[in-house]
Structures are given as C-alpha cells and as structure tokens.
Amino acid sequence: MAEQINPDQLKELQEKIKRMSPEELKEFQKKQCIFCQIISGKIQARKIYEDEKVTAVLDINPANPGHILLLTKEHYSIMPQIPDDDVAHIFIVAKSLSNSMLRGIDAHGTNLIVANGIAAGQRAQHFIVHIIPRKENDGVNFVLPQKTIEQNELELIGDKIKAALSGVPEKEEKEPIMPILPKKQPEQKIAEQKTSAKITETSKGSPEKSGIDLDDIAKLLGAK
C-alpha cells in the first residue's frame, strides 16, 4: 500500500531530488519505472528476446495477439535522449522481431509505433517501440488524417527543421526536451545532459552514490 506523504516529507523529498547527482537521478527514475522492473525481472513478463541493450516482451493488453514491447534496458523517457548507436541497435532488433511475426505467427504486416510525449499518446515513462502484428480486417486502425499544407507553409516549416538539424553538430549537448516529465529546475536539466554523455561509462558498473538513500525516497513514494 502506498503511504500517505505529508507536506514535510514531500518537501524533504523535493530537496533530496534537487541535490541528486545525475547517476542518482537516473537510478531514482529507474526505481519508479514499471518497465525497468520488468527488465530487471522484479515484475514478471513474457520475454521474447533479450540482449545487452534491449528486452522484448509481450504486451499484456495487446492490439493484436503477439504485440511486442521493445524496451531499452537503460531508462530513457523519450527517443531524443537515446544515443545513435543504441537507436541503430534497437531498430535492427525491431526489424528482426517484425520478421519473426511474419514467419512465426502468420502476420501479414506489422506496425512500428513510437510515442514521444503524452501528446503523442505515450503512457509509460520509458521509451518503447510497439511492434504490432497485422492481418486484414483485424479491427486495428491507424489511418493518419491528410491535411493539405500550402506550399509557402511547407517551405517555412522545412527551413525551420533544416535550421534545427544543421545547428546541431553530432555530439553537441542540447537542452533535453522532456514534455512528459514535470517541469524541473535547471539543475536537473544539466543533470540529464551529463547523464546522457556518461551512459557508456556508467552502464557497466554500479552507479556512484553520494550519501542519499534511494530506498528511503522510494519508500516515501510508496514504491515498496
């Protein structure tokens, strides 16, 4: 049962979160995330595939039988946070799983869907690729509306996107865009940037801690 958090505890908690190092913050997010618990095995799931970077499980409330959730083992909220090498790996695995559906469960097509942000339909705070097996008249319907976009608007939008693309050299640290997370203090943004840069170093070893008891905080939030 989740314990009731009184205002003092909440304040204390917010203070603790503010003081967290990037590694601790990541660890903290992980503790709160149901998909991280599926990956670690704390919550049982029907695993289809697993390697050092990803885990694929069956969705318990599928769009169609065989609907797979492909999860990154590292906790990322949205796709823009994921390093290029991992993006490559994730979608090569997604392709292979799509192929498994065509061969293994007589799917006649597949959909791959990623939702970044609540406005895009994201419900979990963990990056997921949905791989959905499809058949004719299966009742699933992903028809995109078609708007007519005027040529001058198209030019304007295209130039904006191009500018954003070219203004971002390969490894430059940008402000993370996290519309699905609550508004946070600037310290936390910096923390996130550092985290993404350090992923390769920290993912192997255990994250360093600096005297903040994560179990304590998790307990306050009613995780255990």
């Binding site: 799509s98 006649h108 597949t110 959909n111 939702a115 004719e136 996107i161 954003a164």
Partner: peptide, 21 residues
C-alpha cells in the same frame, strides 16, 4: 521538430505491408 516547431510530442510510425496500412 521538437525544437523548431514547438511540438508537444512526436510519433515515429511505420506501416509495413498493406494490412498494416
């Protein structure tokens, strides 16, 4: 798109095969 168009979210969507749209 997030940065330049003020989008609140993005979808990556693939329809693979006619039954998938």
């Amino acid at each position: 798109i997030f940065e330049s168009l003020g989008a609140q979210g993005t979808n990556i969507f693939v329809a693979n095969g006619i039954p998938a749209g």
